[in-house]
Write a protein that binds this DNA or RNA. Structure first.
Lengths: 148, 148
DNA sequence: CGTGCTTTGGTTGTGCACAACTTAGTTGCA
DNA sequence: TGCAACTAAGTTGTGCACAACCAAAGCACG
């Protein structure tokens, strides 16, 4: 089947094009796109464990551990083992990390404007993609279970 | 804005979920998803330059050069400077690369089945995403031009 | 002809992604 | 109680992505 006919390639290309558009905006904040996503989660509610971040962002510890270390080195977050359970690491915003929210406030609107799509279309697209991703995740789990 | 509300995250998560679903199928062929995409392009028409591959897949030489070297090491393609213009490298399928097409024929259908979506929905989604990606690319170009 | 510009592909360095494995801490239960 | 099973995070190794830079080949215009 021709490349142009495949949904999966369209998804792959659209995803990269989007992060490319974020790049110049996030560069000014000293952030990468995945780092920005971590901050979005923490700005919503501070003090998440690495596991919680992974569930929210669908990323595993192999990705998050070094990413969070870089963010800690940049002074955006702090990491601390919890008192109750020494296995768990809690990630908290520093003052600098909290303050970045104000500077990042214009980012989503700038992106929406760049898409040139109206709100209704974007909401539909988001919902379709979210359902799509969930279906893929479930299918992957079933496939992994069958393999056993 | 909450993470769940953003189209861009849905896109990012859906793209990773999709390649994750490809992974077990492509593992059996000894391929990664980007390598599979290169083969899709070559199966359609063999003997492309690195530049052409980059335009088709929207990847630059920094990504393609090492990727193609790995594919050459795996015996799937050959790379050769063209006689006319020594700057240009042409990529051609080997016999093994050509034969892989038969073994890969069931992959797209397996993915479509896993999505659980009907053809009409998938076609619409693909077209929306393709338009979306084009708009993003153009916006990124304009942004880069304005920067100058 | 020659010199500067452009084009093509490659290299280097950074930062994801993710599989496979490791380590330390916790829990269940015989 | 003792220990096997489990869990959370981290480490290692591989393979993209992409920016920034580089070298060689080709080209254009004086």
């Amino acid at each position: 089947m021709a490349l142009r006919r495949q949904v999966c390639f369209a998804l792959y290309a659209a995803s990269r094009a989007t992060t490319a558009l974020y790049r110049p905006l996030l560069d000014e904040l000293g952030l990468t796109y995945p780092q920005y996503l971590v901050l979005l989660v923490l700005w919503e509610r501070d003090g998440r464990t690495v596991k919680e971040l992974g569930e929210e962002l669908r990323l595993d510890s192999g990705t998050l551990s070094p990413l969070l270390k870089r963010m800690e080195a940049a002074g955006l977050v702090e990491r601390q083992r919890t008192a109750g359970d020494e296995r768990v690491v809690e990630v908290r915003l520093t003052a600098a990390g909290t303050e970045l929210q104000a500077r990042a406030r214009s980012v989503p609107a700038a992106l929406v404007a760049a898409t040139g799509l109206d709100r209704k279309t974007l909401v539909e697209l988001r919902d379709t993609l979210t359902t799509f991703a969930s279906t893929m995740d479930i299918a992957a789990q079933e496939l992994a279970a069958k393999k056993k």
